[in-house]
Design a protein around this nucleic acid. Structure first.
Lengths: 348, 348
DNA sequence: ATCGGGAACGCAGACGTTTGCGTGAAATGA
DNA sequence: TCATTTCACGCAAACGTCTGCGTTCCCGAT
């Protein structure tokens, strides 16, 4: 079965024999069952440590139904935001003794056979982080009673979700731009498939369009740098009078593309046109971009997401829940702002 | 145990009963054992499909010792190269009916408890993609007979590896730069901990330093954008006569940082100084950078890596193997080149 | 002296698959 | 026609852990 040479992995049975007790006692002792005497518990713990005992999770899963495995659907890695999210997820999950099984990574659609793997492995729950609205994995989970939590996404039926308050973020950015004297905004969105983008744009538009201020330009940048770049080129082509005086990109990566295109065409950012983004990805902090943006509270989002999932794994009948976390504006050099600190006060 | 309400998951036992045969027959029929008659096989397959049967991998693992899970150690996601790698890995693994369990992601060290999870879950093998030389996970695997394959890394003891021919890549870049008339090179390396960087630098130096050409500058850019930026600033400070006339960054991300810094300080790339990188990450193709680089054959590397691993899972006694794949230079605008197509000929 | 009641463990079945050995029956060869 | 294969399938023992029920022993309270 395993490697022929004589290493009979130490198991609970091995331990029970060398301790002269039953396997059930060993099992219970190892997980701190109060019905085992402290002395016995200590003795078994010592034995286990000495023998280098490693529990066989597969066996545990088979017996108890709990695998400690969480299915993970990851968004397009071309957006550094998901890289951030991934690292934070893995870190926090490990601290909770949970591991991720990757179901999918990338922009493409999820094949059925892939999504079903999630059932084969009896994952305890499933985490979906993808702005993409359609998700086969979520359906399969829902049909089979596997709790689903979405991070960075608006909840769908049969799923809990935690995301940043996208509308509020868009609104904050809009107020900042207005305070900086901008009245003609362009919006670089990411199509109808992205729930985040839709919310951000809604919040922005509502807060921006007061008085004479209006949205004078919209462009579908598809959540990729190239899309933003194309938008920037289009804007640069416009006659100076028609051009927006500021740009709201629903994600930093788009905004960065736009900035590069504008500059390549000879326009100055922020002197000729201001640009703000969303997400606060590390790349946006580089001096070359220094993009003003809205930071999503990634660590907190991950923590709440994992909490939500853990709760539903423990008690599957819990109702779906959507939590919105507040982010914060990060002011950098890519957008002109009002003189003095008027904004600081207004921001409260 | 599972959800109380009446859904008794269809198992092999269920199927065996409704088919009126033994469980062993069902098991064998489902996996195409030739000792089962075609008619029986068809009948059982139909039954399984109809009942929506899903094998319980945990039970299979317990019995057969093979989990179909591969442990994955991922490098720092701040380098987009690993994002590329991840997507390709997940895609190809899924096609082979294999899944990844994430052991670690990011730059930080791997905790022991994390690495041991890999034993708890009885992973069939382990894939390590990280330029970082030290790796706790590899040791643990080696000690427990779990095959290890490293991608994008020089092999260590007890591990197979597949990587791009880094030295050859460095050499190619060096010859390209020489052909472009450069004689004073600066090298932006990533410290002694990166086996890739070391090889790339070695190959570059050997090919570049002929005749009057020499390496006039070295800088540890730690594989991050900021490191490259710092290097660029340092170079811009140098008196014009002392400055290198070209820069070899052992990874694109470093080179991009350097380019931004040089330009911010008023130097022109490539007019004042040429810059070449390594990896061919998508970001480097952006018009703003257009960095000349060396493309690693990622898809092929992943394929060979998975092959290597599969072979060793099947036959653990196979000796370690190191495979080097040839990459190709990608010429863009960040480096001056010789007039005409002299290079094309010389490259062969 | 009897009884009720924890405390501390042991028994044994279950979880769902896999697999080494059978074992009848049909097919083959002489 | 009989011995020998080959075919197709069944038996049952793992795999390692969990857990619902006992069972024993010891104590303090009647």
């Amino acid at each position: 079965m395993t490697d022929a040479p004589g290493k009979p992995r130490t198991t609970i049975v091995t331990l029970s024999r060398s301790a002269g007790v039953s396997t059930s006692t060993v099992s219970r002792a190892l997980k701190g069952d109060p019905s085992i005497s402290p002395s016995m518990r200590a003795r078994i713990a010592a034995l286990a440590a000495e023998a280098g005992y490693m529990p066989n999770i597969m066996a545990r899963t088979l017996s108890s139904g709990r695998s400690g495995l969480i299915g993970l659907v990851l968004g397009a890695a071309s957006n550094p935001f998901y890289a951030m999210l991934l690292e934070e997820l893995v870190r926090q999950a490990a601290a909770r003794q949970q591991r991720f099984m990757i179901i999918h990574a990338g922009a493409g659609p999820i094949e059925d056979s892939t999504a079903e793997a999630l059932l084969h492995y009896r994952v305890d729950g499933c985490l979906i982080t993808s702005a993409d609205l359609s998700s086969r994995a979520a359906d399969i989970c829902a049909r089979n009673g596997v709790p689903v939590v979405m991070i960075n996404r608006i909840p769908r039926q049969h799923a809990s979700a935690v995301s940043c308050d996208n509308a509020e973020g868009g609104g904050t950015l809009a107020r900042f731009l207005r305070a900086g004297g901008h009245r003609r905004a362009g919006i670089l969105h990411s199509g109808a498939g992205s729930s985040n983008g839709i919310e951000r744009e809604r919040g922005f538009t509502e807060a921006f369009t007061r008085g004479a201020a209006r949205i004078v330009f919209r462009f579908d940048a598809r959540s990729v740098y190239e899309g933003g770049y194309a938008a920037g080129e289009a804007i640069a082509e416009m006659p100076a009078g028609k051009r927006p005086d500021c740009l709201f990109a629903v994600s930093d990566i788009i905004g960065m593309g736009a900035m590069d295109a504008l500059r390549a065409k000879g326009l100055r950012v922020p002197q000729d046109i201001s640009v703000v983004g969303f997400d606060c990805i590390p790349d946006g902090a580089r001096p070359h971009y220094a993009i003003t943006t809205f930071r999503q509270p990634v660590a907190a989002m991950v923590r709440r997401g994992l909490d939500l999932l853990a709760a539903r794994i423990g008690e599957p009948s819990l109702p779906d829940e959507a939590v919105l976390l507040r982010g914060e504006i990060v002011i950098r050099a890519s957008a002109r702002q009002a003189a003095g600190d008027a904004w600081d006060k207004a921001a409260g």
